[in-house]
Design a binder for these strands. Structure first.
Lengths: 110, 110
DNA sequence: ACAAATTATATCATATTTGATATATGCGCT
DNA sequence: AGCGCATATATCAAATATGATATAATTTGT
């Protein structure tokens, strides 16, 4: 995990600090985070291609600020909301499955 | 959606009654339910092959009753918990993605 | 540069999800 | 039948996620 990525995680409220701190996360915990972040990234991409945050929010009876947090990878956003938002962009279960399958990549140290 | 399935959904607290009631769910809402139920089913399968509910619960700092609800497709269980449990059975993001991709099938009427 | 639209951040009361606990039910085995 | 173990169901206080609101910052178009 490079510096930029770690800082992005910290800025979004994830309990990730030094590399030592990071190692306190089990592989399962970090995979869960990777899945959420992967969904965030693709959500933003898909949403931008079709509508504003406010429009998406209305579709799922949420609010624009919540969509901003979802796309920003904020730790207060559940997979639940991310999936609801993905579906509202017209994503199929296949689309969502593919995003999750592609998450949780390789973490390298030296 | 056949009768047995509807009754199973109702028994687990889903707001699904008559076919008319069902139709009040948007396609997105029912897809979300299908995704959760697909995860439940595979979770039970994977868990049974490797450990007891109590053992899985301990791995994710949860409780045996909560795992029972997760496997039973209870509506009080979030995708979050389902995914955490899947990961604790050793499932990879690929495994999880595949389950989700396969969810939300065809609903037929006549 | 300006205005309008869009997105981000902060706060908060409410709703939902959570793990814990107690207890019931089932299930294989002797 | 009775025992041990696994799973299911019920209840609940605490934690977390939620949508709403206000407002700040940013982007976009002119």
């Amino acid at each position: 995990m490079d510096k930029a990525k770690r800082e992005r995680l910290e800025a979004n409220g994830w309990k990730v600090g030094t590399v030592a701190d990071f190692l306190e996360l089990t592989p399962e915990e970090s995979t869960l985070i990777e899945i959420k972040l992967a969904l965030s990234r693709i959500l933003r991409q898909r949403r931008q291609e079709r509508m504003t945050q406010a429009e998406l929010a209305e579709k799922i009876h949420s609010s624009q600020p919540r969509i901003a947090k979802a796309e920003g990878g904020d730790s207060s956003v559940s997979i639940e909301l991310l999936v609801r938002a993905m579906l509202a962009t017209g994503a199929t279960p296949q689309d969502i499955g593919q995003v999750i399958a592609g998450a949780g990549g390789i973490i390298s140290f030296q």
